[in-house]
Amino acid sequence: MHISTLFFGELDVQESEVVTFTQGVPGFEGLTKFTLVQPEDSAPFSYIQSVQNGDLSFLVTDPFLFFKEYDIHLSDSLLEELKIETADDVIVWSVVTVNSDFTKFTLNLLAPIIWNVKSKMAKQVILHDSEYNVKHEIVLGEAAQVEG
């Protein structure tokens, strides 16, 4: 399929690259079809782009790059809903917020996106009874140290 996006221009997205958010994304429940966009110059950040609304994308990153001790528990009902069979099926994403002058970056560790690469299903979940919050500040140099 061909989509016109706000940030990436025209994209050709194969059906095999489309992931279904089982209940939409909080605040955008009507939008359930997304694809991952990973521009080379954006590492360690990626984008989850709606294929239904070209104006909507979320900046995301792997939270474990910045918070090695990040620990989440996935409920049995979530494992069943997303058809998760093994840990290798799962990628965890955190939504990134950037302030207006691009000097401060925060991760939402309270509501990770659980992405099953095998079943092509995903869901943003809220971690109840958690010490995490929606704005954990990150320093970009920390990710480079982890990668290198």
Rank of each mutant, 00 (worst) to 15 (best):
V98P: 07
T97D: 10
L82K: 03
F67A: 06
V98H: 10
E85C: 08
Y70I: 07
D71P: 00
D76H: 08
E69I: 05
D76V: 13
E69L: 01
A87H: 05
E81N: 09
I91F: 05
F67Q: 07
V92M: 02
S100W: 10
F67K: 08
V92P: 00
I91D: 07
V98W: 10
V95T: 10
K68M: 12
K68P: 12
D88N: 12
N99Y: 09
I72E: 05
L78F: 05
T86M: 04
L78I: 15
W93D: 03
S94V: 01
L79M: 14
E85T: 12
L79N: 14
V98Q: 03
A87N: 12
D101K: 09
S77M: 14
E85N: 13
T97F: 00
H73D: 13
Y70Q: 08
T86N: 12
L82A: 10
A87E: 15
I91C: 01
F67T: 05
S94H: 02
E81P: 04
E81A: 09
V96P: 03
S94M: 06
I91S: 06
V98C: 13
A87D: 13
I84T: 04
A87I: 10
E81V: 07
S94T: 08
D89M: 06
V95D: 07
N99W: 09
H73Y: 12
D88Q: 12
I72H: 01
V90W: 02
V92R: 03
V95C: 07
V95H: 00
S77G: 05
A87Q: 11
V90K: 02
A87R: 06
S94A: 15
Y70P: 02
E81S: 08
L79T: 05
N99D: 15
E69K: 07
L74F: 03
D76A: 15
V95K: 01
E69F: 00
I91G: 02
I84Y: 00
V90E: 08
E80K: 14
I72G: 04
E85Q: 12
I84A: 03
V95S: 05
I72Q: 04
F67S: 06
L79D: 06
T97E: 08
E81C: 04
F67W: 06
E69A: 11
D76L: 13
D76W: 02
L79K: 12
F67G: 06
W93A: 07
S75C: 09
A87V: 11
D88H: 07
V90Y: 03
V92E: 00
V90R: 01
K68Y: 05
V92L: 11
V98E: 11
